[in-house]
Simulated scan of single mutants.
Amino acid sequence: MNAKVEQASGTNAADIAKLALAAVILVGGIAGFYYFSGAAQVLRVLGLLVAVVAAAFVGSQTGPGRTLRFFLRESSIELRKVVWPTREETIRTTGVIVVVVIIISLILGLIDLILKVVVMDWLLKL
């Protein structure tokens, strides 16, 4: 884990303007996708992808965008440290969970049946 102290930073006017520009680019790309419905599907999707990439680039230049990029970079580093279970461990663990769920459901069903008999047959017949 990275031991850097994060500074609380507010979003300034330039960041807000950049985020608004990114939103306009994204909405423009979506609007263009539907406006040019007569054009080839490949061109429409390509235009939409260009707009999404451009909006992501503009958004990544803001304070929140830099924070997100830092978080994603640190997350990928942490994911490389994870020791994933083997297939056999996963199957064994899943089997144990299934057995425990069945046992607990039978116990809860039995408790429900006992309470039903007690309430319906004994208490309500008085």
Rank of each mutant, 00 (worst) to 15 (best):
Asn12Ser: 02
Gln41Leu: 10
Gly32Phe: 07
Phe36Glu: 03
Leu19Thr: 09
Ser60Thr: 13
Asn12Arg: 04
Leu19Cys: 13
Ala40Val: 09
Ala14Pro: 12
Gly65Thr: 01
Gly32Cys: 04
Ala55Trp: 14
Ser37Arg: 05
Val45Ile: 15
Val52Gln: 11
Arg44Ile: 09
Ala13Asn: 12
Glu74Ser: 08
Ala17Gln: 06
Val50Glu: 01
Ala56Lys: 02
Ala17Gly: 05
Ile30Phe: 09
Ala20Trp: 01
Leu68Gln: 05
Lys18Thr: 01
Leu46Asn: 11
Leu21Cys: 03
Val42Asn: 09
Ala56Arg: 13
Ala40Arg: 02
Ser76Met: 06
Thr62Trp: 11
Thr11Arg: 10
Phe70Pro: 14
Phe57Met: 11
Tyr34Val: 03
Ala39Asp: 08
Gly29Ala: 03
Ser37Asp: 15
Ala22Asn: 02
Leu49Pro: 03
Thr11Cys: 00
Ala22Ile: 02
Tyr35Pro: 13
Ala20Cys: 05
Ala17Val: 09
Gly65Pro: 07
Gly32Arg: 10
Ala17Cys: 01
Tyr34Met: 02
Ala39Ser: 07
Ala56Phe: 10
Ala55Leu: 11
Phe57Trp: 15
Phe71Asn: 09
Pro64Asn: 09
Ser75Tyr: 03
Phe33Ala: 10
Leu49Gly: 15
Val52Asp: 14
Asn12Trp: 00
Ala23Glu: 15
Gly29Thr: 08
Ala39Met: 00
Glu74Pro: 04
Ala14Phe: 15
Leu68Ile: 12
Ala17Leu: 11
Leu68Glu: 03
Val58Cys: 01
Ala55Thr: 00
Gly63Arg: 13
Ser76Asp: 12
Leu43Val: 15
Gly38Lys: 05
Gly32Pro: 06
Phe36Asn: 02
Ala40Pro: 00
Phe70Gln: 05
Tyr35Met: 15
Gly28Tyr: 07
Arg73Asn: 04
Phe71Ser: 03
Gly47Leu: 05
Phe33Val: 08
Ala39Asn: 13
Thr62Leu: 04
Gly28Asp: 08
Gly38Asp: 06
Ala23Pro: 02
Val27Leu: 12
Leu19His: 00
Leu72Trp: 05
Thr11Ile: 07
Leu19Lys: 14
Arg73Gly: 14
Lys18Trp: 03
Ala54Tyr: 10
Thr62Pro: 12
Ala13Lys: 13
Leu68Pro: 09
Ala40Lys: 05
Ala14Trp: 13
Leu21Trp: 01
Ile16Ala: 13
Leu48Gly: 02
Leu21Ile: 00
Gly59Val: 01
Tyr35Phe: 15
Phe57Ile: 13
Pro64His: 03
Val50Met: 07
Tyr35Gly: 15
Leu43Gly: 13
Arg66Pro: 09
Gly47Lys: 00
Thr11Lys: 05
Gly28Arg: 08
Arg66Ser: 10
Ala39Ile: 02
Val53Ala: 10
Ser75Lys: 08
Ala20Ser: 13
Ile77Asp: 12
Ser76Glu: 10
Gly28Gln: 06
Leu49Asp: 04
Leu68Asn: 01
Val42Phe: 04
Phe57Thr: 10
Phe70Cys: 06
Gly32Ser: 14
Ala39Lys: 08
Leu26Thr: 07
Ala56Gln: 03
Gly32Thr: 06
Gly63Pro: 01
Leu19Phe: 02
Ala17Asn: 06
Val52His: 04
